[in-house]
Design a binder for these strands. Structure first.
Lengths: 334, 334
DNA sequence: AAATGTAATGCAAGCGCTTTGAAAATATTG
DNA sequence: CAATATTTTCAAAGCGCTTGCATTACATTT
């Protein structure tokens, strides 16, 4: 591995000059800079980032935190797309991403703060954190720049990105109402996801805006899994709640719900119209095509990355959350 | 940030002793070790990995290389699961994963070698590399430990993991034959994926083993996309090839193919039986349920990680490829 | 008690880079 | 041409840690 001193020796210059030349300091004459760069290239010089990091106390590393153990396909494909957006953004910066695999879910895992400080990362990007996660208290300490997806956390160097969930609910409900539905049931996810209460509010508000009284009996909480959606719909149907439309807080649950509806010998959308949330790939392919509220996941990642980048590089920047637009994708289920 | 010298000062010991104590050197008395550890904890000491890396010339970093720009859902969900496997394995080791986002696909991107040497990573894990990728020549230089998924590369410190594609094809063909099919068409992916020729061979061999002559007219190459599968099936059907079963080299293409078949007013599986490859999530949900060859993606990642770990830590270890078992998942399409 | 062996600790160099403050070389001015 | 300003270069310290070698402290043997 050729290093700066090797180049210095060969060119009979000082180490300092070599370093400065390669870093394009204007205090090094252009001629020298060119010569140094050329020689460095010829000698196959590759800068040692570990040394550089140590000297500069800056790693150009973003720690990407997400949870593998949530194995639903929703979460996976959502996460993957968000990460793609993050990668795309940072692809045009000197930052790389680092992932610290957790060895155990829950207790005994190392503190996020320690891991991060130890690697000297410059910022944290957190996808899919749950309300009961112990990391949250650590993050609140504001020990370094953080951006979360779908979790409202604020601080001097902390912010987040979320879909416009309220709008998403309104789009869905408005559309159902425009189709003539009045009795609209709602299957929500569990409250470990910060978006759940928001979507609940969105559902409720949208109903009221349409002059439809909210009926608690038409709502039920589930767990964002397919089976959960199935069971929720099943119980809604068995208890003979009167409803002609069903709004489901995730596509995966919607798929389960549709299965339950069909098992009850009802037709979708004729007897019960169904709208999901997410627009995952299979929404398009599942059965008859799922009408759903599309989240722009890639964009969430991209904008989040941009935000984080800014927080890191502009110490006096006051971060504000980003809200990403959603749209209603009309297919066969409603 | 408290550092070793701070602890040394407080305890009035030498820096060396502190370092050794924390690293559990037996040359430090147990009593001292305990004292040092306790004090370190009290003082909130967090080791600085940048400094440590520099001193030890070892980063405990694995570079994870994959390509975002391949946006098919197949690739995405395959990749995500492989990565989960990798993360799970390394979760029980001191290694972290680093991802270097590419800013541009293809030319102008930095050399893999430079990036890797620069960050001082200890090994490379490569998912989804294509046969025309410029990285391949670099990898062959054997400049550091590498494990690929689905790409046959060998070297002193290079190996790979693949599904048992031959077996997968045999399972599919045998099953179709057992159902009475004799004319079995095959839609393959493009040859930029190293697995394609293998699956082609597998298909051909399996036919022969069943005493069915190979008929080139019943095979067609496509591109692993849904639309590609659609077009391939369409052209097969339009040219009036005689076949009662269709084996498709990926689930995504199979979904497209089924769409084409239905458009031609043929039924699946009554008129044409279809078997896919991968067993992605939507195989279970698409239409009638796709019969398919399941790849154990998580396991591929896990075993690959284990292999890479070994190559890194045992310099004289001679790496051998890992072949991961596959299984036939029978659903409604065949 | 001297000689020897062993366990515990410390000194100092080094990992490869950045950066401050000073010096040397060159250019500008009256 | 001396005096001043400007450009270019360099020596050395430091980033926080590991580690080979030397040293000291203590235990064992004769």
């Amino acid at each position: 591995m050729v290093k700066l001193t090797d180049i210095a020796a060969k060119l009979d210059m000082s180490l300092t000059t070599i370093s400065r030349a390669l870093n394009n300091y204007s205090t090094v004459s252009l001629k020298t800079r060119d010569l140094v760069k050329k020689t460095a290239k010829e000698m196959g010089y590759v800068p040692n980032r570990m040394a550089r990091n140590l000297a500069m106390k800056k790693s150009h590393l973003i720690s990407l935190v997400y949870d593998d153990y949530n194995e639903t396909i929703s979460y996976q494909s959502f996460t993957f797309e968000v990460i793609s957006g993050i990668r795309r953004y940072f692809g045009n910066t000197p930052y790389d991403l680092i992932m610290v695999p957790e060895n155990k879910r829950g207790k005994n895992r190392e503190s996020l703060k320690n891991i991060s400080l130890s690697r000297g990362v410059d910022g944290l990007f957190i996808v899919g954190i749950r309300t009961d996660d112990s990391y949250i208290d650590e993050i609140k300490e504001d020990f370094m720049p953080v951006v979360c997806i779908d979790y409202p956390l604020n601080g001097k160097r902390i912010s987040y990105v979320e879909s416009d969930n309220i709008k998403g609910c309104r789009l869905a409900i408005d559309y159902l109402v425009s189709l003539g539905h009045k009795d609209i049931a709602f299957i929500n996810g569990h409250n470990l996801a910060a978006v759940s209460p928001v979507r609940f509010e969105g559902y409720k508000t949208a109903l009221e805006e349409n002059g439809i009284p909210f009926n608690r009996e038409l709502t039920i909480n589930s767990d964002y899994t397919e089976d959960g959606g199935y069971r929720a719909a099943k119980s809604l149907l068995e208890e003979k709640r009167e409803f002609s439309a069903l709004f489901v807080a995730s596509d995966l649950m919607a798929v389960g719900a549709i299965m339950a509806i069909k098992e009850t010998n009802l037709r979708v959308p004729e007897d019960i119209a169904v709208i999901g949330f997410d627009d995952l790939f299979f929404a398009e392919h599942s059965h008859l095509g799922l009408t759903t509220v599309r989240q722009h996941k890639f964009e969430m990642g991209y904008q989040g990355a941009k935000l984080l980048h800014r927080i890191i590089e502009q110490p006096d920047y006051i971060p504000r959350k980003r809200k990403i637009d959603v749209e209603l994708i009309i297919r066969g289920s409603a």
